[in-house]
Design a protein around this nucleic acid. Structure first.
Lengths: 253, 253
DNA sequence: ACAAAAGTGTTTGATATACACCCATGT
DNA sequence: ACATGGGTGTATATCAAACACTTTTGT
């Protein structure tokens, strides 16, 4: 539980270090055992959950802020982070006004100012990320996307928007590099797509299409040990992957 | 030419009214005589040009801010405005620091603070818009996209990003409602697409595809008076158009 | 031997591209 | 009459969807 004194201290520190009225919220997607997960924080002194977020240092490029926040929460660095929307409704943080209203006068509490938040989403390998709570939180854990708890503020909207954006991106950008382990099988990659899109895809057509993008390299050795026929292992061809990221897939016109 | 006194006054007013460190810049595209135009401002006391921009009132939703700014610059209201990116490099406004450095101390000049800017783009009917300069500007005029003057700050980057976004959107969203007059011919609409994409399209295939989207209504009467065969007039089917805006065109997966 | 996972086709329909022809109108 | 802009149609290639068969491996 946060004391008034601590809150005041955090508030003063934040005011001194960060740009006012601007925050960053990260929707960190992970993938594990066929389930899409998202990283959520649970506050010490209340019930709801939050997306991991943070603020922009007074002289810090926002892309760095987003990366810093992601790193602080997952230990991961150099991850594809996609800015997707700014949420700027003045009413979006009224939960906060309520929550802190008896602790510290509004004027003294930096955190109850109005904030615009810049939404970023990240796709990370579930296994590499080590969730770390921040100073306000009791927990930082992966939650299943289809079993979400109640989210505070407008974080449900932010999450939904991120997911919609991700699904759109899927149509003209490669996805998976940060979500999959170094090597993976085609069915595993397919499972990722199916999970994100929440629909079944045809095994054979998926494979053909995926290979057609030219962003995969097939390893010599198939995965051994498993039951049934041994699947081939693939990894992303980083060069082509990056190119596809910038250029996109299907032209259209 | 802006006097120091005026600047101080504007600065103090702005500080009192707007959120600090946050601005909005609008890339307003218009279409006229087969040319894509963009609305630019020319400052009184310097050479470069700017995108029309503004600030967010302390209690104003950012979508309203963008609309307000657009309205102040063009007189147009209820226009499709698309938020497309936040530009948050701390160095992005160093032009401003230079420009004002001899006029007013940094601490007193609100406009030389660091600003993140939220980029919006709008597509408007060239004929309906009446360019209005703001208090800092001598001129607000349409400039041809392929004959751009030097842009200040990072506004060239913002403009380029807007154009890239627009071209991407073209692949899965209808475009044109705000750029075209109420009624237009198919060749006219095609010209718009060709101009945005900067490439020639096949007349017949364009028509088939466009009609396939089901967002156009054909008027009874063809356009009379012109030379050669009278073309049909079309208008957008607003209902389907809106639906296509939210749902997008070609599914992908 | 067989069930289940995975690799590799083939057939079919839709969609895009390229191209040809016809119609109307002012000079 | 003819050049030009504009409407409509058709053959072809390309791609996506649906579906079948074969191979491997643990039980």
């Amino acid at each position: 539980m946060l004391t008034e004194k601590e809150l005041k201290e955090y508030s003063d520190n934040a005011r001194a270090s960060y740009l006012p009225h601007i925050s960053i919220d990260c929707v960190v997607f992970g993938f594990h055992e066929g389930m899409l997960k998202v990283l959520l924080l649970h506050m010490k002194n209340e019930n709801g959950w939050y997306l991991p977020g943070g603020f922009v240092l007074k002289d810090e490029p926002i892309e760095l802020s987003a990366n810093r926040i992601l790193k602080e929460r997952t230990g991961l660095d150099e991850i594809f982070l996609q800015q997707f929307h700014v949420f700027g409704d003045p009413q979006r943080s009224k939960d906060h006004f309520e929550m802190y209203k008896d602790m510290l006068p509004r004027a003294e509490n930096w955190f109850t100012d109005r904030f615009l938040t810049i939404g970023y989403y990240a796709l990370v390998d579930f296994c590499d990320a080590i969730p770390q709570p921040d100073i306000f939180s009791a927990d930082c854990i992966w939650r299943d996307l289809d079993d979400l708890p109640e989210l505070k503020l407008d974080h449900a909207l932010i999450l939904k928007t991120a997911l919609d954006t991700l699904r759109l991106q899927l149509n003209y950008q490669p996805i998976g590099y940060n979500l999959m382990p170094k090597e993976f099988t085609m069915p595993e990659l397919q499972k990722l797509y199916e999970t994100i899109l929440d629909k079944k895809l045809d095994r054979r057509n998926f494979q053909r299409r995926m290979l057609g993008f030219g962003i995969l390299k097939r390893s010599e050795k198939p995965r051994k040990g498993g039951a049934h026929k041994a699947p081939y292992l693939y990894s992303f061809d980083l060069e082509n992957y990056q190119a596809a990221l910038t250029e996109g897939f299907k032209g259209g016109w």
